[in-house]
Design a protein around this nucleic acid. Structure first.
Length: 353
DNA sequence: AACTCGGGGTA
DNA sequence: TACCCAGAGTT
């Protein structure tokens, strides 16, 4: 199919036939995902739900599909509509997001839900969606294409990688990404923008993978310069990453008659708005002094946790039989609170259990 | 333009 | 280990 179409448009440009070859492959190999309408259903009266598409896109920002699936099921079961989500207390949503990471997404998720609920409907264009909190260039394009059938492009990490290889992009990565976005926009088919977006992402996730791309089953390898060159895994060429510094601190498991001591972290910054265990500052020049109110305590071990731009080593310190703590803190039942904590604190609590 | 912001799977 | 993932917001 690809070759016949390519021949039929031989007088055209470099990418003639690519969208059709990709869509044809997608019709046969699309992943089945809980937020997705299957190929073919779209044309048979099945209407996508913007709320579910948007929710999935936010969860999937810098997050793998397997990690997001369970959260998506829980969220849509607990809050079936954007109105239901919008009317939920912040703490409940943050607790449900715990473990998914990048917690600014959850804060913006609620802001966005409340704006949409107040408006009464979703903006139905890429430009309109782009104005909402937490919706950037990628998500605006994706939701517009997937939910509203707008001819917008959804250029994510997968698409960047696929086209870096198609083009054998050797230039500055930032420049190449701009170039790729411009090209992809011209390739989105007018009638099936949503399926085109899903097809590119599926190809990147299952065929044109980061480490060992399976070019032998690739439906668009005829257009791929990296395949012709013979070393597709060489692309994309990205700038080297900086080494992560190590930060040190202490975290406290303080137990009393009514549970374990937690705090709600300040709404900005790292783990902002999340429930947390009492902890010192985290510093590169060694652990800060023990919090004054901790008093008599026992060191039981250390947890290591890797954040985006630093590694953290926390000494885990336990205090038993404490029922009076500073007013910034509160007691919660130990079994119930674990699921509401970010991973670094889950690790510490588990070590102390 | 550079930095901040999580967590887990993969080779 | 190192890299990556349906990126966005702030400075």
């Amino acid at each position: 199919m690809a070759k016949r179409e390519k021949a039929a448009f031989a007088a055209g440009t470099r990418f003639d036939g690519l969208p059709d070859a990709l869509l044809d492959w997608y019709g046969r190999h699309a992943r089945t995902l809980p937020w997705r309408i299957g190929p073919g259903e779209r044309g048979r009266g099945v209407v996508p739900d913007p709320y579910r598409i948007w929710l999935a896109e936010i969860m999937l920002q810098q997050t793998t599909v397997p990690h997001a699936v369970g959260y998506f099921e829980t969220f849509t079961r607990t809050w079936p509509t954007v109105e239901a989500l919008a009317s939920t207390e912040d703490g409940d949503v943050m607790a449900a997001w715990a473990g998914l990471g990048y917690y600014a997404r959850a804060r913006n998720l609620l802001k966005c839900a409340r704006e949409v609920a107040a408006r009464g409907s979703w903006p139905k264009t890429e430009a309109g969606l782009r104005e909402l909190p937490g919706i950037g260039p990628y998500t605006a394009g994706a939701v517009a294409a997937l939910a509203f059938n707008e001819r917008s492009a959804a250029v994510d990490g997968n698409v960047d990688r696929v086209f870096a290889r198609i083009l054998a992009a050797k230039g500055e990565w930032k420049d190449e990404k701009r170039r790729i976005a411009d090209i992809v926009r011209t390739l989105v088919p007018e009638d099936r923008p949503g399926e085109f977006a899903e097809a590119l992402m599926d190809l990147g996730a299952t065929v044109c993978t980061p480490k060992r791309p399976n070019c032998l089953i690739c439906p668009i390898r005829d257009w791929c310069t990296a395949y012709t060159e013979g070393e597709p895994e060489r692309y994309p060429v990205k700038p080297a990453k900086k080494v992560k510094p190590v930060r040190y601190g202490e975290v406290y498991i303080v137990r009393g008659a009514s549970g374990v001591v937690v705090e709600t972290r300040p709404p900005q910054g790292l783990l902002g708005g999340m429930l947390g265990l009492p902890t010192t500052d985290w510093r590169e020049d060694g652990a800060a002094a023990r919090l004054e109110w901790i008093g008599d305590a026992e060191e039981i071990g250390e947890v290591k946790h890797v954040f985006t731009h630093f590694e953290l080593r926390l000494k885990v310190v336990t205090v038993e039989g404490r029922d009076l703590v500073p007013s910034d803190y509160e007691f919660r039942g130990e079994e119930g609170v674990a699921s509401a904590l970010p991973s670094v604190f889950k690790k510490a609590l588990k070590l102390a259990s």
